[in-house]
Simulated assay, not measured.
Amino acid sequence: MSSLKHTSIPKESFDDILSRYSATAPDKLQDLDTLRYETIPATLAERKKSGAAYLKKEEVEKLVEWKLKHGTFRPKLLQLVQSNPSSLIEDTTRKAFAIITPEQPLKALKVLTELKGIGPATASLLLSVCDPDEVPFFSDELFRWVMWDEEGGGGPSGWKRAIKYNNKEYGELVKRVKDGVERLQVSAVDCERVAWVLGKEGVDVVKSGEGVVNEDVEKASKGVKKLAKEERVVKGKRKGKEVAKEEKKGVKRKVEAMKPAVAEGVRRSSRRKMGS
C-alpha cells in the first residue's frame, strides 16, 4: 500500500487526483482559474520572448482576486494592492521575474513583497504564473500536504495546520515540492492543484493506497455530490416558487382587469330589473 504523501504518492494516483480538480473547484472560479492557469502564464511567456516578462496592474489584481476567492477572503488586501501605481507594479514584477530561479526564488520573492498588499504567499503566486513548471504557489493546501510528516501536521487536523506565511516556510515548501516534481516528472502548478483537491476532500493522505479510493475520499465525494444535488433542488424550488408567484400575479392582474367589466354588467342588469 502506498500513501498519498508527497514523498510517496504514485504517479497514477497523482494523475487521478489531478483529474478531479475541475469537478472540485467551484463554478464561480472557472473564469479566474482560466486567467490564473492559462491566460496570464501564456501572456508572460510571450512577453519573455519579446524581451522581458512583467505583469500589468489589472493582471495582478485578478490574480489577487483569484487567491482571495480560492482561500480566505480579505477585502482590505485587494484594496492595498490596488493602491500601487501601475508603473510601480510593472517595474517591480519585471525586476523580480528577471532574477527568478527555480532553485532559489526567495530573492525574487523579496522584491515583490516591496509592493503594498503583496506578502510572501501572494508574491509566490505572481512568481508561479511566471514559471508554473518549477516555482510553486505558497497555498495553504500545498504547504500542509508537503509538511504532513512534520510536527503539527498529519492526521485529522493535518489540513488545519497553522501557517506563518513567512520566507522560511516558503523556502521549505520550495525544497519539498522540487523533490516531488523531479520524482514524478510533473509541474509545480499540478502539485498545487493535487494538494487543493486533497485538502478540499479532507483526505488523510497516509491511509490511501495506490489505485484505491479511501473511505475519506468516498465520503468527501458523496458530500460534494449531495451538496450539488441540494443546490439544484433549492434552485429548482426557488425557480418553481418564482414561476408560481408570477402566475399568481398574472391571475390577479387578469381578475383586476375583469372587475370593471363585471361591475358594468351588474349595473346594466340592475337597470333592466328596475325598468321592468
Rank of each mutant, 00 (worst) to 15 (best):
P136D: 00
R253S: 10
M147W: 01
W66V: 02
E103W: 00
Y37R: 15
R144C: 02
V174K: 10
E151F: 06
I17V: 15
L142D: 03
M258N: 14
D190W: 01
V251I: 11
E38N: 12
G223T: 08
K245G: 06
E230K: 15
K229N: 08
V213D: 01
L77E: 07
R238Q: 13
I118K: 09
R272M: 11
T101W: 00
M1T: 03
R232Q: 14
D133E: 15
V213N: 02
L173A: 05
K235R: 15
V243K: 15
V206N: 14
Q185A: 10
K168Q: 11
L112V: 04
K249Y: 01
D16I: 01
G158N: 04
T43S: 14
D16F: 13
S128M: 11
L4Q: 06
R161Q: 10
T72W: 02
G171I: 04
T34L: 13
T113H: 07
K168C: 00
K239S: 12
V194T: 10
Y21G: 09
K175I: 00
R74N: 01
T113L: 01
K207S: 08
S83M: 12
R94C: 07
V217I: 04
P85Q: 12
L115Y: 08
V233N: 10
Y54Q: 06
A220N: 06
V194M: 03
A96M: 08
V174L: 05
Y21L: 02
G153Q: 01
P10C: 07
K252G: 06
Y54N: 04
C191I: 00
G171M: 04
E242L: 12
V177M: 04
E65P: 15
F138Y: 14
L198Q: 07
K226V: 00
Q104Y: 02
T93L: 05
S2M: 06
V255N: 10
L77S: 11
K222Y: 03
K168W: 03
L112T: 05
D140R: 05
V217Q: 14
K49N: 02
S139T: 09
K110V: 04
R161M: 13
Y170K: 04
E134A: 14
A220T: 02
F97I: 10
E46Q: 14
A263D: 14
F14D: 03
D15V: 12
R74I: 03
L125W: 07
R176S: 01
V262A: 12
E151M: 01
P41F: 12
L29C: 06
A53I: 03
P156G: 04
G154W: 02
G71Y: 04
R183I: 02
T34Y: 14
G250C: 00
T93N: 07
S221E: 12
K248W: 09
K67R: 08
Q185D: 14
